[in-house]
Design a binder for these strands. Structure first.
Lengths: 335, 335
DNA sequence: ATGAAAGCGCTAACAA
DNA sequence: TTGTTAGCGCTTTCAT
């Protein structure tokens, strides 16, 4: 905790110390090959002696590149999100990029202002899990040389890369699995209907129910916080008399587990359950929860890859990476 | 996704457009009072028209202040950590700061290099949950004007503020609660013995055991990944024949739940259990898990407060904020 | 292979 | 109140 600011060495100091010109020092700093190894060694020694650290601000200002990427997520508390961030951060570090993290809380306005702030920080790229697929918060805001990767969202005819999972197919498979147990009144429970992932999952559920000639039973709420025990009583039991539920994200799953517990309903016995998003204890509760597992960390890493490929010059059409989500069957579905 | 880079407007463009000098435009940008409202309005209009965004890099370079803080955590996957990050990020945003997030993975070397990278980015402050309390990764690295706040760690005679919880007292209370049930062979299970929080919690456990004239039974492993079911068989059952366990962090708790389950041991019936760190399903597993709850988000916010107070000029002695952890009793302890 | 000098976009002395 | 000027630390033409 020492080091007076006044003494923080600059590249000029390094050059002086090494007895070379500023430009030569700069070349060494950037591993430029066009410098004699002899001088390069002197410069490196000087850097070492002075404890030199390049000033990323100055470098970024001049080079028009900050070596930082922004990431905007709706909700860090969700373990799925946290793991995605983790994956992205790890990949970014390996490539020498820093990650500036922002959280939108699912609020489109906040998301918009976070984007503005990140642009002001001259980020080289942005990875975003959008708060609302109805609103395009990018267009007209993001400079042409800042690449954007969307997580959990494919924007039709938008000019960006994206990473998603097999939402539709997995939802269909999950539903079909429940139907395979002879269950007929399967209710899909989701929240934030404007989210791309939600729409896709609902579509998958629909397809399965239609194919089986069964009535679609979709309970979609604006926000997860309305999923109280009473809500379950009214909608799941009174209205639909469900024999199975499919919860479409982690927060809904938590709400359902809590709701069913409080109503004294026993999972698998009274009602079957299958959920999107695995979590640490899913296999330890009784009965073990059958889930659709999304490869959270890989999603973050894939987002980073798409971004860095662009930053390294990839051009051409925008890519949609679709990662497989996996059905992990435990006991809650009736197995 | 339009906006060719060439056309990204600078403050000079704004000044030209508004028909004022660069400095006047700068004054308006910084809400300097010493500018006639008439001109200020013109400048603001020009900014609006041009879609001007201040370049934070240039600003930071000149002002020697980046309006960004760094945060280094060991493990984002831990919900406790994720929530702390969330709290810090929210507080930072409210103060106009960005958060650059880095993850050390518990590796001291990585932590050190992340610190270096963040310093190079001219962060104004650093919040860090250290990977290892034995190693001082700051001294001699951090410029005097970069303030540091430690989370989950109090470094004796170090020159930094810190935020912790009542680790020792809560561990003692938790142990005493178990003893109050008549349990006698209480084993404390922890990992990463070099972490401050671990030492404190062990100390609290010790105090309770000693006060009750009972043998201390401490199982401290280097890393949580050795906590396999066999490990539990050997240490918890064969060696200690435990009638209760106190797990000292979230990862240990997960390992214990998994281990006991695989060994067919029933919590509360075969062995009582009490744990540090609450999580979303702690009240839904059977039996409900009794835990010591740390106020994760508040810890992040408190860290931000300490930091921003310093950045706003607070001087003087370093503060240690100690937040209360709360014992939440459910059934796993035998209640 | 190396260096002198200009300037990235902004802020801050210092004048006016 | 306003503008002129220098320069933050770095990269980069363009000479040499």
């Amino acid at each position: 905790m020492a080091i007076p600011k006044s003494s923080v060495p600059t590249l000029v100091d390094v050059a002086l110390e090494a007895g070379v010109s500023l430009k030569t020092a700069s070349r060494v700093l950037n591993n430029s090959p066009e410098v004699r190894e002899e001088k390069a060694a002197k410069v490196r020694a000087a850097m070492e002696r002075l404890g030199y650290r390049a000033n990323a601000l100055a470098r970024g200002l001049k080079a028009q590149r900050s070596a930082a990427v922004g990431m905007i997520v709706p909700n860090l508390s969700d373990p799925f999100t946290a793991n995605s961030v983790h994956g992205l951060q790890a990949a970014a570090r390996e490539c020498g990029y820093a990650v500036i993290l922002a959280s939108s809380g699912g609020d489109v306005e906040l998301e918009r202002s976070e984007i503005q702030a990140l642009i002001g920080r001259q980020i080289d790229g942005l990875v975003i899990a959008p708060a609302d697929s109805r609103h395009d918060t990018f267009t007209g805001v993001i400079p042409a040389d800042v690449h954007v990767v969307a997580l959990d969202q494919v924007l039709k005819n938008a000019k960006l890369d994206s990473v998603t999972v097999t939402n539709r197919r997995s939802a269909r498979e999950a539903t079909e699995h429940l139907l395979g147990h002879g269950l007929r009144r399967v209710v899909a429970i989701g929240a934030r209907p404007h989210l791309y992932t939600m729409k896709e999952r609902v579509t998958g559920y629909r397809a399965a129910m239609r194919a089986a000639n069964l009535q679609e039973r979709i309970c979609m709420v604006e926000h997860e916080n309305v999923l109280t025990p009473q809500w379950f009583t009214e909608h799941i039991f009174a209205l639909h008399n469900a024999d199975a539920i499919l919860t479409l994200n982690w927060v809904c799953t938590m709400a359902a587990l809590r709701g069913l517990r409080q109503l004294g309903k026993s999972i698998a016995k009274d009602i079957a359950m299958l959920s999107f998003d695995d979590f640490d204890l899913a296999d330890l509760i009784s009965p073990g929860l059958s889930v659709v597992v999304q490869p959270a960390e890989e999603i973050g890493r894939a987002g980073a890859s798409l971004l860095f490929e662009r930053l390294n010059g990839r051009t051409g059409s925008f890519r949609s990476v679709v990662l497989p989500a996996k059905l992990v069957i435990r006991q809650s579905c009736g197995c």
